[in-house]
């Protein structure tokens, strides 16, 4: 097991009170496998990812409970100094918006070399050679010249490739991709996804792929975990969940994705809004928006019920 997250709780102090952004999340990722983490904005996907790196916003964010086991080592117990040796080298992350992910005042080479230097040591030779290598890995044309370019001289897609190169420069085992294509033009989204998949296969990466788009999940992921209001409500192999989603929220999410083959007059949507995280309803958090809701749903949070070998859903209506 490459990554094993157990019962992770992360809280954020905001001006409205403490928010349980990640509230008892568990999942695992094998080497070479891709787990999709799906949910609406504000469901806690990004917070989960940042928790793994121990980079929650300071000083508001805090991991209050749980374990993050990377190759069996618990990251939650590590010191900041130890974490720095893990970030970039063993876990890396690609952020959502390439326009702002790169520092505008340094050239690209500088920013890649910097990532390499942290892990290979100040005196390591041939850092620029390796940086060129890193760019070649993400299929950037004329990498040698690109190293001297500044971010504003590149297109969005190119920048996101550079961010990928930085993330992969130190050959990590686990890559977190946080909606890496959301900010890209539709035409280059697919290109980028294919690139990620290709690199993953070559490097044997484990990947945590965060998205809100089930179309991308189908293309990229082996397994998927659906998050709602800080908790995972359903998880399982992509194939199985696509065939038969068991949680009403998963079903609703999938139904709201437009499909080419079906002729629909109006896309179904989920009524209401996700609950405010500082005022969560007592029972199932999806209850206020759920069409199958009954009394018990409003009172008690449902336990995760196993359906088949690795498929589980947290809903009272799911019979094992």
């Amino acid at each position: 097991m490459l990554l094993d997250v157990k019962d992770l709780h992360a809280h954020l102090r905001t001006r409205w009170g403490t928010v349980k952004a990640v509230d008892g999340v568990s999942f695992s990722i094998e080497a070479g496998e891709t787990l999709g983490l799906v949910g609406e904005s504000g469901s806690g996907k990004t917070m989960t990812a940042l928790s793994l790196l121990r980079l929650l916003p300071e000083p508001a964010g805090r991991i209050v409970n749980g374990q993050v086991l990377l190759d069996g080592e618990d990251l939650v117990a590590k010191s900041e100094r130890e974490m720095r040796r893990i970030r970039g080298r063993r876990i890396s992350m690609i952020l959502q918006d390439p326009q702002t992910s790169l520092n505008p005042v340094f050239n690209v080479g500088n920013q890649i070399v910097e990532a390499l230097r942290v892990h290979l040591g100040r005196r390591a030779n041939g850092l620029w050679k390796r940086a060129e290598e890193a760019l070649r890995r993400v299929k950037v044309a004329a990498p040698q010249e690109r190293l001297r370019s500044f971010p504003h001289q590149m297109s969005g897609g190119m920048k996101q490739r550079v961010v990928g190169a930085i993330a992969l420069a130190s050959e990590p085992k686990l890559l977190i991709a946080d909606e890496p294509t959301t900010a890209l033009d539709v035409t280059i989204q697919l290109q980028y996804l294919m690139l990620l998949k290709d690199v993953q296969a070559r490097m044997g990466l484990g990947m945590l792929f965060i998205t809100h788009d089930f179309g991308i999940v189908a293309r990229m992921c082996d397994r998927v975990a659906v998050m709602y209001a800080g908790r995972i409500v359903e998880s399982g192999p992509v194939r199985e969940i696509f065939k038969a989603p068991r949680h009403p929220y998963t079903a609703a999410l999938m139904a709201s994705v437009p499909r080419m083959e079906a002729r629909v007059h109006r896309l179904p949507s989920i009524d209401g809004q996700p609950p405010a995280l500082h005022r969560l309803p007592g029972g199932c958090r999806f209850a206020p928006r759920c069409s199958y809701v009954d009394e018990r749903c409003r009172l008690e949070y449902p336990p995760a019920v196993a359906i088949g070998r690795s498929h589980a859903a947290a809903c009272w209506k799911v019979a094992p």
Binding site: R84, I86, R87, S92, M93, A115, V118
Partner: peptide, 17 residues
């Protein structure tokens, strides 16, 4: 609060850098 500072931390850079 910018993304590039976040990326710099993700790289494993120290607070000082």
């Amino acid at each position: 609060n910018s993304e590039f500072v976040k990326l710099a931390r993700i790289k494993g850079l120290s607070q000082t850098v």
